[in-house]
């Protein structure tokens, strides 16, 4: 391949460094094929090789800009609004569900200081709620990664609340657990919707 075209593709590639290697290779392969086809057509139209390459590259525009535009386009444009929507939904779901939970479980907590096991159990339930609210709001995850994250999140939340009671650690854990649920749920939703549209 022409060295000028290779240099151009290298400059595009430099902007795609954060993409997975497979995606990056596919991107460059497609651009290369397009450039080669253009050069061949322009040569057939009567341009010499050098003129054909320069015309094709001019048609593609600045390599840096193309790379950046491709990089931006790969950053799942829907993920941010979905994440925001999922967070709002999760908070709403939590606020709606908490009184129900409180009536059903919290009011039946043993009086005084609960035994460690009971405390762990109740706290686990307490923190499971924001996580599952987040998960449901973001989209129910059936993946192994989603389930593992949920288990780890709940375990950490239960331990944290057991050790730190209801101090700043509790609030922090609550927010982290809620956001973890939202994040897992929303990511799975985006992936699922994209896979479904491709299928």
């Amino acid at each position: 391949m022409n060295s000028q075209l290779e240099a151009y593709l290298h400059r595009v590639e430099a902007q795609l460094h954060s993409l997975p290697a497979e995606k990056r290779a596919a991107e460059l392969r497609e651009l290369r094929q397009h450039l080669e086809a253009m050069v061949a057509r322009l040569s057939n139209d009567g341009l010499n090789q050098q003129e054909a390459v320069e015309t094709a590259l001019a048609q593609f525009g600045d390599a840096h800009h193309l790379g950046q535009a491709l990089h931006q386009a790969h950053r799942a444009p829907e993920s941010v609004p979905r994440f925001v929507l999922a967070t709002v939904g999760a908070v709403g779901a939590y606020l709606y569900l908490f009184p129900l939970y409180k009536a059903a479980v919290w009011s039946h907590m043993p009086p005084g200081h609960p035994l460690p096991i009971q405390g762990l159990f109740y706290n686990a339930l307490y923190w499971l709620l924001p996580f599952t609210s987040g998960l449901l709001a973001g989209g129910i995850s059936t993946s192994r990664a989603g389930q593992s994250t949920a288990c780890v999140g709940v375990l950490v939340a239960a331990l944290m609340t057991t050790f730190f009671s209801f101090g700043p650690g509790t609030l922090l854990t609550f927010l982290c657990t809620l956001l973890a649920g939202v994040k897992v749920g929303s990511q799975r939703t985006v992936q699922f919707s994209l896979e479904r549209s491709k299928g």
Partner: peptide
């Protein structure tokens, strides 16, 4: 159609689920 704008647009359309891209092998060539 400026190619430098075409490919980012294709990626966005793919991400939106409006188009689907797949690598296909023809009778000749890559």
């Amino acid at each position: 159609m400026r190619e430098g704008s075409l490919y980012p647009a294709l990626r966005v359309l793919e991400a939106q689920g409006l188009i689907k891209g797949s690598w296909e092998t023809g009778s000749s060539g890559p």
